[in-house]
């Protein structure tokens, strides 16, 4: 590096050792360009890893009791423990429904047709608007005097307005409204990554459409579906604003993030809040690992498309 300007005589002195060292680094692909990583590394260490481990450490230093007593406190309190099932009871069905509903629709729409871009743009809208606005809309739309119940009574499906907000269903709908487009667009991009000639090849070999889907496309799509499920699940699992706004935050939609939030911002018990956040992360990790483990059982190589 610095030897550039020095004369051959000056080089010969310290050269062998340094050259050797440089050669070793070069072989492993290390050089000055890697310094470009520093800002990002610094960032991730200071703003992500440090807070995370700080939180982890904090969760073992409860304001009173032994290191694990905050965890014990969470699991021994039935009201707190129930949040786990509440959260899973909301997020697993919602994620599953979003992914399963996406498949046939994406399968039908994967080709080119007029208005496809419009459809995708419209689908992006609820995702970008986010859960807070969706909650506000759902309060109006699904409320006892909202349009949804009005239509139902108008066509005589019900006589009484159905209660759809401030309970499980309000939150569930909000997870569908934001989660379905998300899952759909992901599934669509995985589907268009599968080379369409594979299905044509299967057709020339005598496979009907269902067989083509079942034997060729679906197995190739499975890893993508697993990933989609994970991402949709993560979104649904961390549900917070809609659980408060369209749900019943003290009762049937008291999800785990509400428990964590209350510990931190209402009781100012940061160790307890950290412990709940860690439990939350752990549960999510378990679900994702199970899905990703199942994913390894499928073929995950190239699918030949423009992917």
């Amino acid at each position: 590096m610095t030897a550039a300007t020095s004369t051959p005589a000056a080089e010969s002195a310290g050269q062998p050792a340094r050259a050797h060292w440089q050669h070793r680094l070069a072989e492993r692909g290390v050089d000055r360009q890697l310094w470009l990583l520093t800002p990002a590394l610094l960032f991730v260490v200071l703003l992500f890893l440090y807070p995370f481990f700080y939180g982890l450490g904090l969760s073992f230093q409860p304001t009173e009791g032994r290191p694990f007593s905050d965890y014990a406190r969470f699991f021994s309190d039935a009201y707190q423990r129930a949040t786990i099932w509440t959260t899973l009871g909301l997020s697993l069905p919602a994620a599953l429904l979003n992914v399963v509903a996406s498949v046939p629709i994406a399968y039908r729409m994967r080709g080119r047709f007029r208005g496809k871009r419009l459809v995708t743009i419209l689908l992006v809208v609820p995702i970008t608007l986010g859960t807070v606005l969706t909650a506000q809309g759902l309060l109006n739309f699904l409320g006892p005097t909202g349009w949804f119940n009005r239509v139902l009574t108008a066509v005589h499906l019900t006589d009484e307005p159905i209660r759809l907000i401030h309970n499980y269903w309000g939150v569930f709908f909000s997870l569908i409204i934001t989660g379905f487009p998300f899952a759909f667009l992901l599934v669509l991009s995985y589907l268009s990554g599968i080379d369409p000639t594979l299905e044509r090849a299967a057709a020339t070999l005598g496979a009907g459409w269902w067989q083509r889907f079942r034997v060729v496309t679906l197995p190739l799509l499975m890893p993508g579906l697993a990933t989609t499920f994970c991402l949709t699940f993560v979104l649904a699992f961390s549900v917070f604003p809609s659980a408060v706004l369209v749900g019943n935050p003290a009762g049937e939609t008291r999800v785990i993030s509400i428990a964590a939030y209350q510990a931190a911002y209402e009781q100012y018990d940061y160790p307890y809040a950290s412990a709940i956040a860690m439990i939350m992360g752990l549960i999510e990790l378990v679900v994702i690992s199970v899905v990703l483990f199942a994913r390894t059982r499928f073929y995950t190589g190239s699918t030949g498309g423009k992917g």
Binding site: E11, Q22, R24
Partner: peptide, 13 residues
């Protein structure tokens, strides 16, 4: 980058 040896342009490395 090399991992061994040297290249010389006349007497200049």
């Amino acid at each position: 980058p090399l991992t061994g040896g040297s290249i010389w342009q006349d007497e200049r490395r």
